[in-house]
Design a protein around this nucleic acid. Structure first.
Length: 473
DNA sequence: ATGTTC
């Protein structure tokens, strides 16, 4: 494939057979995965063939191979022009995302109790495949439907969490047009006993400290100061979101022929946003997104209780943002305002200062963007900036460079835990195998990904966080 | 990512 370097951190894949728009990859050549084992640039080109796509098929610096769309992909379709929605452009883990909490305490003050704190978080964070959850209620099915409709707001009404948890959450804690009736009974059954659980894979809960501040005024507006203790939670919508994706991909595979849509890869199954199948998916996806926010909300609330009892410190939400979602947004395209379906898969929305959807206190600085690193490495807090041409989007994390199998072959979970603990990072794992698969050497360098994102004009860097202890899914 | 197989 011919990839031209337009400028540093901006590679271009020119239009050819079937592509409606070019491909734009915001990366240095060094950040592009090896094509022999990773077909992500082919996927960028394939996404460019989707009906109604506008601008370009974009990829972020952490791009790597995914289901249909690349992970790190951004694609927007024009709804009024027959633009499609594709579950592959959202991913199986609908509304997977990151929640960052800031404790009212500095790292020096928790040093004497950090092991106790990690033990408490270890106990209070259900994780691993299909095991338990924080949430216990009398009528789970009825309450689950309320969560699917209203998201975290329903939980605050019921006495879990506080108003700031909603003010500082994307969409104020819940997407408005969720349609629980398009979530199958099987999906609901899978989600019933998993609300308030981490899951597995790259999901984690980490106690961190602010180690570097690059932008004082933005950090202050976000509620962050040097040396402060934070908690980062990375998880998604568990089995419920997975089942929603599976159900609607199946429906679309059959329906798309009726709309005369042909795609180069079966995993790019899609239908017009404005079709019964498209609207059903959008509604079910929104419901799964509400489940995802409620999931992180409950885990964050458990963290708050752990800090209260072990440290005697309060914990405030900095922000909660998804990196696997499609949203209907208005953007200017070729000089006119259009309603677009913006798919972000392994890519984070990054609203600039002054954007109407920001809460008042974030209006002058832009939206916080939360970038989890890998185990033992830094994480970052970024902010949205004006301009950029990927519909206000940026990277979402380090991005895998090796398969899970490859990763596990190169190390062992026990060895990895010992290496991390030797560096003063407490590890509370779920499985040795899972730990080995998440070895930092299986990922790109998150600092390079962040530098490329800023260099490409997609965001600016606000703060760096370093890990003190990790509860691993 | 995922009751890692419909």
């Amino acid at each position: 494939m011919h990839v031209e370097e337009e400028s540093p951190y901006r590679l271009r894949i020119e239009r050819r057979e079937g592509m409606r728009v070019p491909g734009i990859v915001f990366a240095s050549r060094a950040l592009i995965p090896e094509p022999a084992q990773d077909k992500s640039l082919t996927q960028v080109a394939a996404v460019a063939t989707l009906p109604g796509i506008v601008g370009a098929s974009y990829a972020m610096p952490d791009v790597h191979w995914g289901y249909g769309f690349p992970i790190g992909g951004v694609a927007a379709t024009d709804v009024a022009e027959g633009g499609v929605v594709s579950p592959g452009g959202v991913g199986f883990d609908i509304s997977c995302g990151v929640r960052l909490l800031a404790a009212d305490v500095d790292r020096a003050r928790i040093a004497p109790v950090i092991d106790t704190l990690m033990d408490r978080l270890d106990e209070s964070t259900p994780r691993g495949l299909g095991r338990g959850a924080v949430w216990h209620v009398r009528d789970p099915e009825k309450e689950l439907r309320a969560v699917l409709r209203d998201g975290a707001g329903y939980l605050v009404d019921r006495g879990y969490g506080v108003q700031r948890d909603l003010d500082r959450c994307e969409d104020r804690g819940g997407v408005a047009d969720a349609a629980p009736e398009h979530v199958s009974s099987r999906a609901i059954e899978r989600g019933r006993d998993q609300l308030g659980s981490l899951g597995s894979g790259n999901h984690f809960l980490e106690v961190q400290a602010v180690d570097e501040i690059y932008d004082e005024s933005a950090a202050a507006a976000f509620g962050l100061r040097m040396g402060q203790v934070c908690v980062m939670i990375h998880c998604g919508s568990r089995g419920l979101g997975h089942q929603v994706c599976t159900d609607h991909v199946r429906t679309m595979e059959k329906a798309m022929r009726r709309y005369g849509i042909q795609v180069p890869d079966r995993q790019l199954a899609c239908v017009p946003v404005e079709s019964p199948e498209g609207e059903a998916y959008m509604g079910a996806m929104a419901a799964a997104a509400n489940y995802g926010r409620a999931n992180r909300h409950l885990l964050g609330n458990a963290v708050r209780h752990a800090f209260e009892s072990v440290v005697g410190a309060g914990v405030d939400l900095v922000y909660d943002i998804s990196h696997n979602l499609a949203k209907l947004e208005n953007h200017e395209v070729d000089g006119s305002r259009r309603s677009l379906c913006v798919h972000r898969k392994g890519a984070t929305r990054a609203l600039p200062p002054g954007h109407a959807e920001l809460p008042d206190d974030l209006d002058p600085v832009g939206q916080p963007v939360l970038i989890p690193g890998t185990m033992g490495t830094s994480s970052y807090v970024l902010a949205g900036v004006p301009g950029g041409d990927a519909f206000f989007s940026t990277c979402h994390g380090a991005g895998r460079a090796q398969s899970r199998h490859q990763a596990a072959r190169g190390t062992s979970g026990r060895l990895l835990r010992d290496q991390l603990q030797d560096r003063g990072i407490r590890v509370r794992g779920a499985s040795w195998r899972g730990l080995a698969e998440e070895t930092p050497t299986a990922y790109k360098d998150v600092s390079e990904v962040v530098a490329a994102s800023e260099g490409a004009g997609l965001c600016r860097t606000v703060a760096r966080l370093v890990p003190l202890g990790v509860v691993k899914g």
